[in-house]
Structures are given as C-alpha cells and as structure tokens.
Simulated assay, not measured.
Amino acid sequence: MAVADPPQTVRYRLSLATVPASVPEARRGVRAELAARGLDADHPLTDTVLLVVSELVTNAVRHAAPRSPRTTLQLDFGERELTVRVHDRHPHCPQRREVPHEDGSGGWGLALVHELAALAGGAAEAVADEDGGGKTMLVRLPLEC
C-alpha cells in the first residue's frame, strides 16, 4: 500500500523595513499573493487577511522599530489553513487589551486581530523567539475546503 505524500505548504515571505511605508507595501504584496492562490478580492477571507496584515505590520512599525529595523511577513498556505506570521526583533510579546489607551492613542489593533481570527474560525497568538530577543505574531485562518 502506497503512503501519500504530506500536503505541501506554499510560503510567501517579504522582508520589510520597519517604517510606515511598509504597511501599504505589505498589503500590496499580500493582495497579489492571495490573488495568485485563488483568493481574489471577492473571497471571504481576503479582507480579513489584509486587515490582519495591516494591523500586525503597523504594530511592528509603531512599537518594535527602535529595536528591530526589519520585520518579516510570511504567509504559509497549507491544504486547509493559511498562517500569517509577522516577526520582529523586539522582545516584548504583546497581549490584547480589553480597553484602549486612556490617552486615545490606540490599543485596539491586537484585539481586532484576535477578533477577526476568531470570527473566521481561527486563532491568534504571540510566540517568543527561543533566544527571547524577538517574537512572531501568528494568526491561523482556516481555508474553505
């Protein structure tokens, strides 16, 4: 009896300067990659992925830039799941806030990412690098079968 090969993961990876101009650059790259994989503008997951990418790259720009001049965005397309990864070399692993910052400067981005992931049937988490010097924001989203 033959054993089937495990499903292959297709990866898209983009190294970005941790600067504001990288947010629209990330969105453009992700939009093109999603379209190449059959997730065009009308696909129900496309807007979710684009918003997640925008929020996570924006967070890296706003909070990690002084310690992380580069940010890495990666999409892993599995058979049933799309994984979005945004990595930087700032050691703080953020937690989602229950209330925004009192000064009105924000604080909802990570909560929005968690909510979007949950609404799509997925999950979001922060994963510290083994050396403690950075982290990856990881969002798993199921692909329609």
Rank of each mutant, 00 (worst) to 15 (best):
M1E: 14
A2D: 14
D5Q: 14
P7V: 07
P7E: 02
Q8R: 15
V10D: 04
R11Q: 10
R11F: 10
Y12E: 03
Y12A: 05
R13H: 03
L16T: 05
A17D: 15
A17L: 11
T18P: 08
T18N: 11
P20F: 05
P24D: 13
E25W: 01
A26R: 04
G29L: 05
G29R: 02
G29F: 02
G29P: 01
A32P: 08
L34Q: 09
A35T: 14
R37A: 13
R37G: 04
G38A: 10
G38I: 09
A41P: 00
D42Q: 12
D42Y: 05
H43S: 10
P44T: 10
P44Q: 08
L45S: 08
T46C: 08
T46V: 06
T46L: 03
D47T: 11
T48C: 11
T48M: 04
T48W: 03
L50A: 07
L51R: 15
V52K: 15
V52C: 07
V52F: 03
V53Q: 04
V53P: 00
S54K: 14
S54F: 01
E55M: 10
L56M: 13
V57K: 04
A60W: 00
R62W: 07
A64G: 05
A64F: 06
A65W: 05
P66H: 04
R67C: 03
R70V: 12
T71D: 06
T72N: 05
L73K: 00
L75C: 07
L75I: 07
D76G: 01
F77M: 02
F77G: 01
G78E: 02
G78N: 05
E79I: 00
R80C: 01
R80L: 07
E81P: 02
L82G: 03
T83A: 09
V86P: 00
V86H: 00
H87D: 07
H87Y: 01
H87K: 04
H87S: 14
R89Q: 13
P91K: 10
P91W: 02
H92T: 06
H92R: 12
P94I: 15
Q95P: 01
R96W: 10
R97C: 03
E98W: 09
V99K: 13
V99F: 08
H101Q: 11
E102S: 12
D103P: 05
S105H: 12
G106L: 08
G106Q: 07
G106C: 07
G107L: 11
W108R: 15
W108A: 11
G109C: 12
L110M: 13
L110W: 15
L110D: 05
A111Q: 08
A111W: 01
A111H: 07
L112W: 03
V113R: 14
H114L: 06
H114Y: 14
H114P: 07
H114G: 06
E115A: 15
L116S: 10
A117M: 07
A118W: 04
A118Y: 03
A118L: 11
L119C: 09
A120H: 08
G121S: 08
A128D: 03
E130T: 09
G132C: 08
G132F: 07
G133A: 13
K135D: 01
M137W: 10
M137S: 08
V139Q: 06
R140H: 13
R140Y: 06
L141N: 10
C145D: 11
